[in-house]
């Protein structure tokens, strides 16, 4: 179980997160939606301390960290419980696809190379890239790179995978392949927190939607409730555009 309690983050005087509370159960797929600048990505990056929250408490499994007094050891412990998929993939450019996926297993989890290799190849098979194992990231398309990023995260077998706008920098044509892969993993019961602008995707894969604006959670609930019958005025306004788009496309 993952618990975020009263997470606050400020940059100087500018307050980005104003006390966020979220509980994620094992197997949950949480989608965080909201307009640009609402703090979605910052929240996600606070969970693995790529941004240091100023206040709050993060609990992942048996690791509980008081953000204000987080030590290096705490941060490392949180990072070893999580994995992240980035908007810009962030693969290690000087390593092959297979090495990218193995890196965390051999270096961080100290797994013997042979075992790490097996697991990594299994993960690459899951994202459909076994044939690219010996390629370098620069030889792959954006969609393929992102799938490697997903395999890298999956290999670690983390408590939760954090997706930071995984399709935002992809060609429209390549979005589909990445979404399909994420959907497949979601069905396997991997716990995920997904920040995305793909509304339809969020609705289809998540079992809980969090709508944020200005560093606050405005509304949250089951996808069908949020999409079809939002309670808050701001949420209605936000999803109106989306539902309209759908009616146009028919």
């Amino acid at each position: 179980m993952i618990q975020l309690r009263n997470i606050r983050k400020t940059y100087g005087k500018h307050s980005v997160l104003n006390g966020i509370n979220i509980t994620v159960e094992k197997g949950d797929v949480i989608a965080i939606l909201g307009p640009s600048g609402s703090g979605k990505t910052t929240l996600l990056r606070c969970i693995n301390f790529l941004e240091h929250p100023n206040e709050g408490e993060i609990t992942i499994g048996e690791v509980a960290v008081d953000c204000k007094h987080a030590s290096k050891k705490d941060v490392l412990a949180l990072r070893r419980k999580t994995a992240m998929v980035f908007q810009h993939y962030n693969l290690f450019k000087h390593k092959t696809v297979l090495q990218n996926v193995m890196e965390g297993l051999t270096v961080v989890q100290k797994m013997p190379a042979e075992e790490a290799r097996e697991i990594s190849l299994l993960m690459l098979a899951k994202v459909g890239l076994t044939h690219k194992a010996d390629s370098y990231p620069s030889q792959l398309s954006g969609g393929q790179q992102q799938r490697v990023g997903i395999a890298r995260a999956l290999a670690l077998n983390p408590e939760v995978i954090l997706f930071d706008e995984p399709t935002s920098s992809l060609d429209p044509e390549l979005v589909g392949e990445v979404l399909t892969v994420i959907q497949n993993i979601a069905q396997e019961g991997v716990t995920m927190i997904v920040v995305t602008h793909e509304m339809g995707f969020a609705r289809d894969i998540s079992n809980h939607i969090v709508f944020m604006e200005e560093g606050r959670i405005i509304e949250e609930g089951k996808p069908q409730d949020i999409f079809n019958a939002p309670k808050e005025e701001r949420t209605k306004q936000f999803f109106k555009r989306f539902t309209n788009e759908w009616s146009y496309s028919i």
Partner: peptide, 25 residues
Amino acid sequence: NKGEIEAAYSIGMTTRQAMWRIVLP
């Protein structure tokens, strides 16, 4: 690329591991 350093941290590497394995090469 800063993103690669973040990726290294995100998979649980220490600062030293990220430096020697990802950044310096």
